[in-house]
Design a protein around this nucleic acid. Structure first.
Lengths: 401, 401
DNA sequence: ACCGTCCCTGAATCATTGG
DNA sequence: TCCAATGATTCAGGGACGG
C-alpha cells in the first residue's frame, strides 16, 4: 500500500491489504457506540458531514471492532503500539477486546484526555474527558519520554542535589568533606503522565473543518511523538477529517488514512494538501495553519512585550509600544534561515509601510552582519539563548583543568 | 444494624445483616487486583498495617466483588447511589459487573481522580489517576450539583450580563435605554465535572495514619456532598482506616463502616474520636499562590530554555543543560532590585552549591556593574526588552526632525 | 522463573532556622 | 513573637540485581 495517502473504503478490507509487520503506530477513533447519527456543517454551511453510529446491539459493534483489532495487530511491527480512542460508553468492552487481542501484558496506559467544556443543565456530573487505551504489540515497544515542568511546589534546588542513605537507612542529601552539597546529574523535568489536559476544539477554532467529533491536532501530536520516530509509519483506519494524517505529516512521519465516507476523504485530502504544500515550503504555512508559532518563538515575543502576528512570513510580532508613532515589527530568525535571509524577509514585509525601527532577534548562528550593510532602522539583537551559548563556550576555556 | 459504628468482619456477611433499602450512599474502595501485599507503618513505626491483594485469578476476584455488589444493590434505597473506586488494573472488569448488577441505564459517570505524585524511571507514561464508577439504583437518584469557580480565562463580567437576540438572530449582550448593561440572574459558577484534581495524600501529610492506600478526606467529601444530604446513611464495606466514616461524620451524615482487619478497625475508631483533616495548602490557597513568577519572568525563562524554580528567592530557574556537569542557576533582576542586589541574592542562594556558572538577566536599569567586582562565574546578560529600550532611546536622537 | 532488597524518584508536607 | 525562607522527610512506583 502506498504511503502518505488517504484511502476511501471499508476499514477492514483496506487493512487486509496492508502487509504484516509494516506499521509503527496505529491511532484509531472508531464510532463510540453512541447509537446516534452525528452531523455537523462546515463553516460556510456549504457542506454537511455526517456518519452513523447506530448498531443493532453492543455485540454487533464489538464484533466489528474486534475484527479491526485483529488486523491491526497483524500489520503492526513488533515495536509498534496502538492507541484506541473512545469514551465511557463502551470503554470497558473495548478494553476487554484489547486485552484479548493484544494480551493483558501489553496494556501500557489508560490515557485520560480532559478538557474544560461549556456547561449544560444535566443532572449529574459534566462529562469532560475521553479515554485512550495504549497497548503495544510486545514488551519491546518504542517509547519517547516527554518531559514537563516540575510542580510548583517542588523544591527544585533540592532535587538537583545528590542523596545518600544514613546508617539507619534514612535518605538525606549528600555533603562532601567541606560541607558542600553534591550535585547530581542533569535533570530533564517530570515525565509526562497519563492525564492530559488539551483544550477541546473551540467551536470557533480555525482548525475546525466542520467534521463531527474532530480531534485537536495537539492531542495527536502528543501521541505520535511518544510512540514513533521520524519516518515511521502511522495508520488511522477511521481517519475522518484527517487529523491524524495532518499531525503525522507535520511531525515528519509517513501515514496511511482510511475512511469509508467519500466526503470525509475528500475533506481530509484537502486539509492535507494545504499541509503538504507547506511542507515543501519550509513548513511555514503549515505551522501557521496549525500551530501558528513554535512555543519558543511565542515565549521570545512575550518576553519582550510583543504580540504575535500570524500569517506573515516576514514579521513575527509587533512590540506593544510604538516608536515615533510607528509600530515596531519584530522578526525572529528561524532555524532554517541565515541571519541575512531573515533580514531580507523583514525588509520585504516592511516595504512601503513606513516603520521607523525594525528588530531582528538572532537565535541560532554566530554570523555577524556588518553594521555598514544594515539599514540604520534595522537592529539585530542576539537572543538571550544565543548569548548564553557564547558565554558557555568562552567560560569553558577559562576554567582551570 | 446500628449506625455510626465501625464493624469488624467479612464484608459480605456484614452486608447481609443490613436491611433492604436502608442506605443512601455506598462508597467502596476494594482491593484493586494488584496481586501484591500492601503494607505500611504508622508514623511512630509502632504499628504495621497490611492487607493482601493477591488472588488466584481474575475470575476469583470478580466473583468476590460481584457478591458484594449484589448485596450493595439490595441495601441501597431507590434514590441511592454507589461509587466504586478502582484503578486501571481491573476497571473494565469491574464496570462490566456494575453494568450487570445495576443495569447499563444506571451508569452515571466515570469519575477520574487525578493528582501529581512522585515519578520514577518507568518506560511509558506515569500513572496519575484512579477511576471511580458512579452508578445509581434508579433514575430517581439523589444528586446535589456542586458549583466551582469559573476558569481564569472566563470573562466573568460578561457572563453576568443578560443576553438578547438581535433582529438577525445573532446573540449580543443586552443594554437598557441608557445604554447600560443589564445584569442577569445570579450565576453560581461552573457545575462540577467528572475529572477531579485533588492532591494525593502526601507522605508527610498529618492526615496520614500509616494505613496503606489511604484516601484523602477531601475526595470522600466531594462524593458524599454530591450524592447525599445531611442525616443520610453512608456505607463503606471496605473502610480500611476509616476515611469514609471521618468524612461522613464531618459532613453530618450517619455511617456504617466494615473492615476485616482488626487493626484497621481499631485505627478507624481511634481516628473518628480525633478527626484530622489536612488543610491542604495547595487546595486552600490555590495554585496561584505558589506561582510566584510573573508571566514575563516565565516567558524569559522559557525563551532561554530554563525551567522555573518557585520556592527560592535567589534563583528563578535552571537552564535545562548543565555546564561542566553542574546546573546553571538563572536569576532575573526584579523591578524593585538593583542589579547589585540581584547578584548578591543569587550568590547567597548558590552558596555551598558548587555551581560553576550563574546567570543574571538584567531587566530594568542601565546601571553597569564593573566587571572587576564580579566573580568570574557570574555573568550578566541584558534582557532583550532592556536592549530594545536602549536602542529606542539612541535611535530617537538619530532621527532627523 | 520468581522472590525480596536496594536504589532512584519528586510532590508536598512538616520542621527548623533566621531576621 | 511571628512570618518568611529553606532544609528534611517519605511513599497503593518501578527497574535492576542477586540469591
Amino acid at each position: 500500500m502506498e504511503l502518505n495517502k488517504i484511502y476511501k473504503g471499508n476499514s477492514l478490507t483496506k487493512l487486509k491489504s496492508i502487509a504484516d509487520n509494516s506499521i509503527d503506530l496505529i491511532y484509531m477513533d472508531p464510532p463510540f457506540f453512541t447509537q446516534r447519527k452525528h452531523q455537523l456543517s462546515s463553516k460556510n454551511a456549504k457542506q454537511k458531514f455526517e456518519f452513523s453510529d447506530v448498531w443493532e446491539n453492543v455485540e454487533a459493534y464489538l464484533a466489528f471492532i474486534q475484527r479491526i483489532l485483529i488486523e491491526s495487530k497483524r500489520v503492526l511491527k513488533d515495536t509498534g503500539s496502538i492507541f484506541l480512542h473512545c469514551d465511557k460508553t463502551a470503554s470497558h468492552h473495548l478494553r476487554l477486546l484489547l486485552d484479548q487481542v493484544f494480551g493483558v501484558n501489553n496494556f501500557r496506559s489508560e490515557i485520560i484526555w480532559f478538557y474544560k467544556r461549556w456547561s449544560n443543565a444535566k443532572k449529574g456530573l459534566l462529562n469532560a474527558h475521553q479515554n485512550i487505551y495504549f497497548y503495544s504489540k510486545s514488551n519491546n515497544f518504542k517509547f519517547n519520554t516527554i518531559y514537563q515542568d516540575y510542580s510548583l511546589t517542588t523544591n527544585i534546588d533540592q532535587i538537583l542535589q545528590e542523596r545518600t542513605r544514613q546508617l539507619n537507612g534514612k535518605s538525606t542529601y549528600k555533603r562532601d568533606e567541606k560541607g558542600q552539597v553534591v550535585l547530581g546529574k542533569e535533570k530533564k523535568g517530570v515525565p509526562l503522565s497519563d492525564v492530559w489536559e488539551i483544550p477541546y476544539l473551540n467551536p470557533k477554532a480555525r482548525e475546525r473543518v466542520g467534521y463531527p467529533t474532530q480531534k485537536p491536532v495537539l492531542l495527536l501530536n502528543q501521541i505520535i511523538k511518544i510512540a514513533s520516530d521520524e519516518n515511521d509509519v502511522v495508520l488511522d483506519p477511521f481517519c475522518g477529517s484527517g487529523t491524524t494524517c495532518v499531525s503525522a505529516a507535520f511531525l515528519k512521519r509517513a501515514f496511511i488514512g482510511i475512511d469509508i465516507s467519500k466526503d470525509a476523504v475528500k475533506l481530509a485530502r484537502k486539509r492535507l494538501d494545504k499541509m503538504v504544500i507547506t511542507q515543501s515550503d519550509l513548513l511555514q504555512k503549515g505551522k501557521q495553519f496549525y500551530l501558528e508559532k513554535t512555543p519558543k518563538e511565542l515565549y521570545i515575543l512575550k518576553s519582550i512585550g510583543a504580540f504575535p502576528v500570524q500569517r506573515n512570513s516576514g514579521i513575527d510580532g509587533f512590540l506593544d509600544h510604538h516608536f515615533n508613532g510607528k509600530p515596531i515589527p519584530v522578526k525572529i530568525q528561524s532555524k532554517e534561515e541565515t541571519l541575512e535571509n531573515s533580514i531580507a524577509k523583514l525588509e520585504k514585509a516592511s516595504n512601503n509601510k513606513g516603520y521607523e525601527l525594525k528588530i531582528i532577534i538572532q537565535t541560532n548562528s554566530k554570523e555577524n552582519i556588518s553594521l555598514l550593510e544594515l539599514n540604520p532602522d534595522v537592529k539585530v539583537i542576539k537572543s538571550m539563548g544565543l548569548k548564553i551559548q557564547e558565554i558557555k563556550s568562552v567560560q569553558k576555556e577559562l576554567i582551570p583543568k
